[in-house]
Design a protein around this nucleic acid. Structure first.
Length: 431
RNA sequence: UCCUCGGUAGCUCAAUCGGCAGAGCGGGUGGCUGUUAACCACUAGGUUGUAGGUUCGAGUCCUACCCGAGGAGCCA
């Protein structure tokens, strides 16, 4: 009985008879030869069926095997430069588990709507496979980073009773006769966690009912949010640049094959090492003015503004101290300039825009109560949050990083929808 | 919500001034001992998003609607 192996390990079995359990990716014929490209999720191996080596019935069967039929191929592993991947299988036996129906995704071009309609099958293709493996590596690097620094994972709830940043972008749902909302951030809960554990983070899905149809938005996306007690804005920026450079360098180290599969030029990624430039909002506005961008001082930056600012630097740039007016109620005001908030956005290079938003939180009870009133938020719903300022309040800070935006940036994707297995967009709820 | 663009074979697209609805891929049949999205020959495949209208004649022009894509705003 031939040993069952994964295609990624084929190089360790040259000269041995092994079997591979997978699916037919593509096939070609040349008279008395069949070239079956078999994939098993770990790779693709060319399996050569020579008429003289197998019985007539098996050779005949090759003709009928359709794309994506599930097959178990047995043969001897050999090294061959003519084969993509360098190894191939000289087939001695082949079993068809199931003869697939006509497969909709052919090796030729398709439009994105069609591919998105078949997302459950599209995941099988080489590029999508590579992207999602990189996503996995990014997530692992994120967790390793915080786990290795003594952070405790504190899971935030998905159902929430109130908004943390306005109500227009919340998904509302019925909850035993009252209303609940799907979370748009775990931050308020992380602040609670930081007061209990010192250093915490959460990682989970968040939801925004923004009616935005752009390549940078999903209605459901994954966010990792650290929060640290006794940390100020500078410490927050130190943490962010350590974090981002660790994630990028880890992917570069461990996922070269996948980056090559998606044809990502990694020279810009190799420059992502600390320190990152830190500029104030006012300095960022000056960059826009210098580049003749029409911009009204005091506004938030748009997508093209962010691109212009980030193009002034060769690595991610941290923009801090935005006008307090355009930021959320929980942001602490800069004691040296009350009109500014102690916040920071990290802008990725190459036009990928904001990947991180965070800052130091307001830790004074009276100020927070006043802000909640000013933002016309229901104070009732925030009593538990205000308790954090009543019982041992301390300076604290944190940030949120959108995983898909980072995947999109590291992979060089043109759209966020390929950065998550099953994207949820304004016009896309299935598959 | 607003702006722009689009909807033709299973898929990707073409169709000149309003004049016979076409190609590649995929499917089917046959051929080939080293193919790399193989190739060669033959073949089947259509209610042109929907509903009206103009016209001798509409994929093409007009009206309304439906669906989608990109962008704006907003954000990670």
């Amino acid at each position: 009985m031939a040993e069952r192996i994964y295609i990624s390990d084929a190089g360790d079995h040259v000269g041995q008879e092994v079997s591979v359990q997978g699916w037919l990716y593509n096939k070609r014929s040349a008279g008395k030869l069949w070239f079956l490209l078999v994939r098993d999720g770990t790779g693709i191996i060319q399996s050569v069926v020579f008429k003289g080596n197998v019985n007539e019935a098996l050779f005949q069967e090759c003709e009928g095997i359709t794309q994506e039929s599930s097959v178990v191929v047995t043969g001897t592993v050999s090294e061959d430069k003519r084969s993509v991947g360098g190894f191939e299988l000289q087939v001695s036996d082949l079993q068809v588990q199931q003869l697939a129906e006509e497969y909709p995704i052919t090796p030729k071009e398709h439009g994105t709507t069609f591919l998105m309609d078949h997302r459950h099958l599209w995941l099988r293709s080489v590029k999508q496979n590579a992207i999602l493996r990189i996503r996995h590596e990014i997530i692992r690097a994120c967790r390793d980073f915080f786990d290795g620094r003594g952070f405790t994972l504190i899971d935030a709830p998905v159902f929430t009773p109130n908004a943390c940043e306005g109500t227009t972008t919340l998904f509302e749902t019925e909850y035993f006769g009252s209303k609940a909302y799907l979370t748009q951030s775990g931050q308020l809960y992380m602040e609670s966690g930081a007061m209990a554990f010192g250093k915490v983070y959460c990682f989970g899905p968040t939801f925004r009912a923004e009616k935005s149809k752009t390549r940078r938005h999903l209605t459901e996306f994954w966010m990792i949010e650290p929060e640290v007690a006794y940390m100020d804005l500078d410490g927050d920026m130190d943490l962010a640049e350590d974090f981002v450079s660790h994630v990028v360098q880890t992917v570069l180290k461990n996922k070269q094959a996948e980056l090559k599969a998606i044809e990502r030029d990694t020279t810009a990624l190799e420059r992502v090492v600390k320190p990152f430039p830190r500029i104030s909002y006012d300095e960022a506005v000056a960059i826009l003015k210098k580049n003749n961008v029409e911009f009204e001082d005091g506004n938030d930056f748009g997508g093209t503004d962010e691109t212009v600012i980030s193009e002034a630097f060769d690595r991610p740039v941290m923009v801090h101290r935005y006008p307090a007016q355009i930021k959320a109620f929980y942001m602490k005001q800069d004691p040296e300039d009350e009109s500014k908030a102690l916040c920071v956005d990290v802008l990725a290079p190459e036009g990928y825009g904001e990947i991180i938003g965070g800052g130091q939180r307001e830790d004074d009870l009276a100020v927070l109560q006043r802000k909640i009133k000013e933002h016309e938020l229901p104070e009732e719903a925030f009593q538990w949050y205000l308790d954090l300022r009543r019982y041992g309040t301390v300076p604290h800070a944190g940030f949120g990083m959108g995983i898909e935006r980072v995947v999109s940036w590291i992979c060089g994707l043109s759209h966020l929808r390929e950065a998550i297995p099953f994207p949820r967009l304004m016009h896309r709820l299935s598959p």
